[in-house]
Amino acid sequence: MLISILSYMGIASLYTKYFKIKFTHSLPTSLSLIIVFLYISAMIGALSLATYFLYILGIASLFIYAYLDRKELTLYLRQYLLEITVLLSVILIYAFYTKDAYFSSWDDFSHWGVFSKELLLSSAIETKTMPTSILLSHAHYPRGPAIYH
């Protein structure tokens, strides 16, 4: 989970530098581009490859940004240290709290969790061998929103 957030911040900083816009404006735009890229990758059956590519690109961008703009990064870290600490603490607490979670009943977590798991395992939006494409109760649900997970 932490790798995903660091990668997202790296891609947002790359987007900020390339288009010369504020970091806060690049966050929703870069997230939208990431989702579109992952959706297209899932349609062609390359979701796993695209995910690893985004992880590497994002973390590399974050380290390059941290190295090249050390003064600006130090200023931001001092200015937003409390917010960063609280955010990372909440993420770590949530990760430890849910590390042993499993699908136990019919709710949003278990419903969309199955689709997300199948996306990761098959690296495609839908194939004929997916259990959710065989079950009649799942046949008409769109698979695309599971990419948000």
Rank of each mutant, 00 (worst) to 15 (best):
I3G: 14
L6A: 12
L6G: 10
Y8K: 07
I11G: 04
A12E: 00
Y15N: 09
K22L: 13
F23M: 03
T24V: 08
S26A: 10
L27V: 01
L27M: 12
T29V: 13
I35A: 14
L38K: 10
L38T: 00
Y39R: 11
A42K: 11
M43D: 09
M43Y: 12
I44N: 07
A46M: 12
L49C: 14
L49A: 01
A50L: 01
T51H: 00
Y52H: 02
F53V: 06
A60Q: 11
S61I: 04
L62K: 04
F63A: 12
Y65W: 14
D69S: 01
R70D: 07
K71Y: 03
E72R: 04
L73W: 05
T74I: 06
Y76L: 14
L77M: 15
T85C: 01
L87Q: 00
L88Y: 11
S89M: 09
V90R: 04
I91Y: 00
I91T: 02
L92W: 12
I93E: 07
A95W: 11
T98R: 10
T98V: 03
K99G: 02
K99Y: 13
W106K: 11
H111C: 00
S116K: 11
E118D: 08
I125N: 03
I125Y: 09
I125L: 05
E126D: 10
M130A: 07
T132P: 09
S133T: 08
L135S: 01
L135C: 07
L136S: 13
S137T: 13
S137Q: 09
H138Y: 14
P142M: 12
